[in-house]
Design a protein around this nucleic acid. Structure first.
Lengths: 99, 99
DNA sequence: CGCTCATGTCACCGTTCGACGACAGCCTAT
DNA sequence: ATAGGCTGTCGTCGAACGGTGACATGAGCG
């Protein structure tokens, strides 16, 4: 899911927590924060510490990716799935300076 | 890029800032934070506020995505970009049961 | 109805944030 | 050599953090 605001982050965390069947208390103790902190973060606390947020995502077994807006993961490890071989060849040609 | 730790975040921000040819001062004023804050975040400040981090990424025209670890973005269709052809071949070999 | 569990909220407290201003170290160009 | 720009670091200070413990609500159940 796209994370644009702190509220998005709260939604992601809450959804994933419920998905795993955890309550705020156990998540809090696993992350090493207070339950109240979880409550506030799920509400979209803008001033929460990033380090703690990252710990939460790790506990929830989630990954975070940053990339230039509108681009499709620049340095991503070739994801399995459909590969547009023509695009690959075109790009290779461009790198060589061919038309 | 994968963002696992606060240090990763610092690297992403610094790289993107330089990519855009901005210095810490102008980035700071555009985001609405002090230059010192930028310095510390780029060094991997773990207790920085998420809200500010998100503002920085927005100014840098970047997107953040959260997903369950190990899953590849469900809605991504053959993304153009740099493809690690060796990884692709290795993966194909593994699928075939080859060594 | 009582009981339990999960959740939201409150006040208090020690710690740390982020802003501000100033200074030093490094480059690069003049 | 001198000037200028970019970066890292140092105090200081008001504001907010996150932890603790307690209390209130609401849902589910025997």
């Amino acid at each position: 899911m796209q994370v644009r605001t702190d509220a998005d982050l709260g939604i992601v965390i809450r959804d994933r927590r419920k998905q795993l069947g955890l309550d705020q208390g156990t998540l809090a103790s696993r992350v090493g924060v207070s339950r109240q902190w979880i409550v506030e973060v799920e509400k979209g606390k803008p001033r929460a510490e990033v380090g703690l947020i990252l710990r939460v995502l790790r506990v929830l077994d989630m990954e975070l990716n940053a990339r230039v807006a509108g681009s499709w993961s620049p340095e991503a490890i070739s994801p399995p799935g459909i590969i547009d071989i023509d695009a690959v060849i075109d790009r290779a040609r461009e790198d060589r300076g061919e038309s």
